[in-house]
Design a protein around this nucleic acid. Sequence first.
RNA 1: GCGAGAGUGGCGGAACUGGCAGACGCGCCGGACUUAGGAUCCGGUGGCCGGAAGGCCGUGGGGGUUCGACUCCCCCCUUUCGCACCA
Length: 834
Amino acid sequence: MSSYRPQDIEQKWQKHWADTRAFEVTEDPSKPKFYCLEMFAYPSGHAHVGHVRNYMIGDIMARCMRMRGFNVLHPFGWDAFGLPAENAAIKNNLHPEKWTLDNIAHMKGQLQRLGISYAWERELATCMPDYYRWNQWLFTRMFDKGLAYRRRSNVNWCESCQTVLANEQVVDGGCWRCSTVVTLRELDQWCLRITAYADELLAAAEGLDQWPEKVLTMQKNWIGRSEGARVRFENIEVFTTRIDTIYGAMFVMLAPEHPLVEQFAEESDDRAAFLAKAARFRAQDKSGRMTGDVEKEGFDTGRKVMNPFTGETVPVWVANFVLGEYGTGAVMGVPGHDQRDFEFARKYDLPIRVVVQPDGHPLTAETMTEAHAADGVLVESGEWNGLPWPEANQKMTAEAASRGVGEGTVQYRLKDWGISRQRYWGTPIPIIHCPSCGMVPVPDADLPVVLPTVTEFTGRGDSPLAQIPEFVNVACPKCSGAARRETDTMDTFVDSSWYFYRFCDPHNDQLPFDPAKVAYWGPVDFYSGGVEHAILHLIYSRFFSRVFRDVGLVTIDEPFTRLLTQGMVLSHGAVMSKSKGNVVDPDDMIQSFGADALRLYVMFVAPPEKEVEWSDSGLEGAFRFLNRVWRVVIHLAKAARQEPAVAGLAFDDGERAMRRKTHVTIRRVTGDINPRVHLNTAVAALMELVNELYLFCEQRGVRPLGVDDEPAAVVERPETAFVLREAIEALVLMLSPFTPHMSEELWEYLGHTDGVVAAGWPACDDDVAREESIEIPVQVNGKVRGRITVAADANETDIEAAAIEAPSVLPYLDGKTIVKVIVAKGRLVSLVVK
RNA sequence: GCGAGAGUGGCGGAACUGGCAGACGCGCCGGACUUAGGAUCCGGUGGCCGGAAGGCCGUGGGGGUUCGACUCCCCCCUUUCGCACCA
């Protein structure tokens, strides 16, 4: 056996794993299951070390849990539909399918060279008909349940390219390709009724105790539940959370999109001017209007409506900051108690009335410089005067309801999910439009609706599918009359919202998956991926999981028990990207130092959640460490032949200390991997063990440890041989999740033929790990003044006595009185003197 | 503006329940081996004072609780992320 040459052994073991289908699993009720998943990949072409990091985290977990005796499902697949493929097609005249499949092939090779323990038999790609067929299947069920519906709504439109743009394709308000200003266009869009689950998604988030708080907060904000009331000012319904301020409602404002705007325009003196003003507001940069970057503006419609509480009539304005898509698209203007209304009123010289007075200094409309949004007591509110805020809100909501002018309601920021894409490379929406039957879902027997082959991609015009008569023209499944297929395709987030269930049964051609298989494997026990998916992917998946539940295929609510959001790997302070030219290619690293060193390094460099800066010298350090491991194991494998059998051995102090280190390390590494997932400190612990081992060898004269092939002298003393053997075997096994190739190779070299999984995870013997004597510091008035060595099980009295007698402590006690002694058992002694 | 997180040596980071701050690695310095060393092994490495023993200071800043604070509380600064006219 010679020096460590990763390239040779890595290929050998990767081939072995592939040949033996080492990571394929079946349901086995006799074993505890562990479903370990990393977010699947968009096949952009090349994996970089940022991907590597995510996949490694999962692989460490999967490999470790496998050794701990769990039945581990660890699959991988491809989020293979999407715009980049279509754009590449337009640019390079390459079919999206070819581009996608080529990329998958390349990236799969990269992942395989990393030695990740995937059950490749379960690999899936969402662009294949045997996958997207089930998107269609589920869609038709959602259609039947009213969870999928069509609605007219605004989309981004580029006049020059004559096409719809996704939000991500709008750059600074212009088309990403030709910079033409993007306009809004009304189109019929397919939507999924996620809002039907808004309350459940919000409430159930409380139970996700193994998700990062940050992600839960983001989801909570995204759902944006808000309790309030709808109140009718004659024919204008407004939404407010502060009905208690309604006596201060001095005007009503409509969003420029509000349907009444058009009607009021018709009835106005100058229809054209009216509409032009509204149109200008609508055209204001969408993001600017939404974020408050645009100045508040409005105009008086000339209309007046009656405030249902005061009986006063108030003017109706159109205001650019009122959002058409939230609430009722109309609000009451309460300038005294809403900052936006306040600014608006001051700008247009509208009256302000204070109706909630805070404690202490009373407010007056004339002198106030900002709205008073906080609580207080109602004034100038007729019969409600004197009521404090929360109570007034409740009572006045009830009053509005009893008088039929409003009712309490809950609003969500969350909107239904628009899934229509006027694009080619996605799942065709399985609906047929029939002139006599209306919208008819494609029957199961006719699924999948296969994406036809399109040969020309121009990026212009409507959906590419609309231009294929053979695709569009179809007989109605109900009446057999001439009908047209839907030509929109689905948002790719549909694909990724349930793939984790498909992995449980990826080849099923009767159902999306066998419910029994998902009942065994689900939910995903450990899910890792980028925090950029904190909202969309993770909330859609929670939604789909419930839809599958409600169609009877799964019994659980939540798809992911534990979520880890891994930090990005930066290079020169920036996210890696081809355009910045700072991509670190894993293949280059593997070539130089091997996959194992790369794996170890990305795990060691920082905690998984944290963002890290790539460092070449850090990788070299990991490589150096592996060489150290290699040398010590190779040499000791021959020198320490003692098989593990402890009976009759009498260890000396040094040997006991070495064993203690081994077993303490087992305990630390085990917990650091799972549950803690502090993979960096797990590696650090293994490094400590190796350092200790080298010192132990040095002390025992068990050399050589050089790189040469000099044969090692056999260790004669059986106790020493045993201790060494125990240490290196534990080391090799614990390292194997991180460096599987090297560990398998060394394990084999150590004389084992069944591989590390069969060997199982090493167990910590608590008796061996227990300290015999411990050194503890002694503090005098909070400063460490000495150390004492006591038996590990010494009682407090003995420890106290030893502390007071410690030579280095004595000078600090001279002439003082000890007022207090605190003994933190096993940790320290604290003396307080005067 | 609102919300959440972070701030520790030259650098990445560790410290799990309030109990020896700086584990482990990178870098740097020294020694051994050596024709050589960018290999390997051993040692050192927060700052200041000191020959040493040892002492003082030290986890963004300021205050507090405690025998004891990186850790808990209050105020402030910096920074990252998310949300952001949602009525």
